[in-house]
Each structure stands twice: as structure tokens, then as C-alpha cells.
Amino acid sequence: MEKEFDLIIIGGGQSSLACGYFLRRSDLDYLILDDQETCGGSWPQTWESLTLFSPSKFSSLPGFMMPSSEGNYPSRDEAIAYLCAYEERYDFPIKRNARVTKVALQNGIFHIHTADGKQLKAKAVISATGTWQKPFIPEVPGRESFQGIQIHSAEYQNAEIFKGKKVLIVGEGNTGAQLLAEVSKVAQTVWATHKQPEFLPDDVDGRVLFDLATAKYEAEKQGKPFDTSLYHLGNIVMTPAVKEARERDVFKSKGRVSAIKDDSVVWENGDREEIDIILWCTGFGFATDHLSGLVPRDSRGRISTEDTRCKDVPGLWLVGYGGWTGFASATLIGVGRSARQTVKEVVEYIKELK
């Protein structure tokens, strides 16, 4: 007979590993499906100079501390090495190169279809596919007619292709600021933002933000007000690269782009400016296409949940997609809390079925 798992986790990144850690304490028969060839989740696809916002001791998954980093903040390669070591340490059951294309529900059993034509069955599913595979670019009039190069930050690796070009960087968040800092060293850059960018104090990093976010979370749970005016949680973190770029005075936003015309962009005031490359640092949707036929989703791929549990489909959980699937669940240090609670709920759900 075809094997039926208690649980299948879709995705092989930090969220699935956190769930796997807590599953060690259960007797569930489970499998992690990862569409990548190697360990590290989406981290190997990020840009070369990317670093975390927090020191290593504040950037760990449950049970195993991240080693000290060479710099103030762990680099991309150090984060990858840590995730690979974490995976090896706990010997999770992972199947690689397994891209899930569809999840269906038949007679209370989930049927998980993969791109190679195979099908697996499970009593419960945790979707932990994150956001990286769903880059978002806003609809700007004329964007399709642009004759230059357009790339999203998800495709960015380094500044090599930008040398000597005039580059428009779109986005006022951390990614926009960090890539502007890097690209401005080798190219003429212009910054487009939806609103005026705001920067955090120099001594505020991801650890401080996590502590503030935790305090806000706890206050909201108790129905108490919380003043975040001191450090707005969405403001730009002053990494060493951003501080260096500030000294070069590169952080001057020209406001919003209202249209794109062939080889140029049109600003809100009507001015037209020629551009060679547009780098979109405009965020991501949610990589939940594999659930499209199973449960309603909004335009960005978001699904209605109560914490991590899907409201519409019993036996389905979503972990690590951001605030709507658990407090700080898209971060290394934050995902442990929602992973622990999710695994507890899954174990209880499977127990009730037996």
C-alpha cells in the first residue's frame, strides 16, 4: 500500500527546521519536502553582501546557537552554514528537489503533488514556503514598455552589471537602502520611494527591534496600549554599509515614479529622467501557489489563519510567513515560538484522528 505520512512539511528553510526541532519530541511520522538542491532554504539565493540585522547570539533557531560571526552581524554565508549545520545536527527527514505544485484534500487525506509527477499522502500539512519565490513589483503605468533592464531584489547578487549605468532603485525599506548603498559605489543612482524614508538611531539593531516588537506583542495580547513612536519597527536599520553610504550623502529620495516611458521614468511632478536599469526593492508576496486550489487566498497569496492554523481547512497550518502566521515568524529568532505551538496543535490533531 502507498505510504501515508502523519505530516508533510512543504519547504526546507528556517521555518521548517524549527518545526522539525519540536517534532523530535513527538512520535509523528513526517517528511520535509524542499524544492532546493542543497540546504540553507532561500539564503543561497540572496545577494552576496547581505547580513543579518542582529548579532549571532540573537539570531538562533531553537536548541542550537548560531556560532559567533567574523563581523558584527552574521553574513549570508555564515547564515547558510548555520542552517546546514542545524539540519545535520538534528538529522531531519528531508527530500530535496521536491517542488510541490498542488495540494488536494480527498476524504480527509492531503494529496501532495510534486513537479516530477509523484504524489504523497499525509493526514496533516504544514506549509513553510516563505516569500522569496514571490517577488512583488507594483503596477506602474508603462512598466512593460521600458527598454532598459528591470530586476527585482530577489535576483540581485552583486553590483557588477550596474557599473557605469544610471540606476533607479525603488523602495524605501531596508532592502532599498542596503542595495542603494552598494550600487551607488559603482553607478549613478536615483532613489524612488513611496514615502519619505526614515532611519533608526545608529545603535538600534535587530535585537533591539525584536525586544520592542515582543513588548508590543505582549501589550496587545493584554489589551494595553504600546507606544512605538521612539523606534518605528519598519524604519531602516543603520548597518555599517548604510552608515557608510550616509557619509557619501546618497540617501536622497526623489519621491514617487508616476509612469515609465521607454528609456525613462516620469516623476510625480512631471519631470522625465532617462534610466538604464530599474532595481525593484518592493518586497514580496507569499509563496502559497501550491494551495491555490485548496483554500481561498488574497492577491498577495495570504490565507485566513488563526495564528498558524488555517481557518478554512482542518489539518493545514502555515508557518513563517510573517505577522499573520505568528509574531516575528519570518525571523530566525522569532519562528521558534510559532513552530512550537504549531507542532503542539498538529500532534493533538493527529491524536484525535487515531
Results as ranks from 00 to 15, higher is better:
T239H: 07
S68E: 14
G13R: 00
P197H: 04
L31A: 12
N235D: 15
L316K: 05
F284N: 01
D29I: 11
C84L: 03
R337G: 07
C19S: 10
V170A: 06
L168A: 13
H111D: 12
F162S: 06
G40N: 03
E155Q: 14
G301P: 02
W132Y: 15
V100R: 01
D203Q: 13
V347E: 14
L23G: 09
L28G: 05
V313Y: 07
F92K: 00
H113L: 06
D34W: 01
T342Y: 06
Y156G: 10
S229I: 09
G12V: 03
E345G: 08
Q188R: 08
S60R: 02
K311V: 15
N72M: 12
I9K: 02
T239Y: 10
A328F: 10
A124L: 01
V237E: 02
A122E: 00
L180T: 02
F53Y: 15
R337C: 06
D202T: 14
A85Q: 09
S54W: 01
E273L: 13
V347M: 07
G283T: 09
S145N: 13
E220L: 14
P93H: 11
V167A: 09
R246C: 11
N97A: 08
F22L: 10
R340Q: 14
T114K: 05
G206V: 02
D227A: 11
G171L: 00
S258K: 13
G301K: 06
D6P: 05
F199K: 04
I10R: 00
P55V: 10
G71N: 12
L168K: 01
E87G: 14
A159K: 07
Q119K: 13
D116H: 06
R76Y: 08
T46K: 07
G130L: 01
G320L: 03
T214W: 03
A18D: 08
E273T: 15
G148L: 03
S68Q: 11
T325M: 03
K118V: 09
P138K: 05
V208N: 07
F226N: 06
D205P: 03
E268C: 13
V343S: 02
A159T: 13
A287L: 02
A79T: 15
V170H: 03
S69H: 07
L294P: 02
D34A: 04
L61V: 04
L332H: 04
G176S: 05
L316Y: 09
R297V: 10
D298W: 07
K102S: 15
G12I: 04
R248V: 00
V319I: 13
V103R: 00
C281A: 14
G285C: 04
Y217S: 15
K121D: 06
L17H: 10
K121N: 13
A328M: 12
G334C: 05
I80Y: 10
I112F: 01
S253L: 01
V237H: 03
A18S: 14
Y86L: 05
H113D: 11
N97L: 09
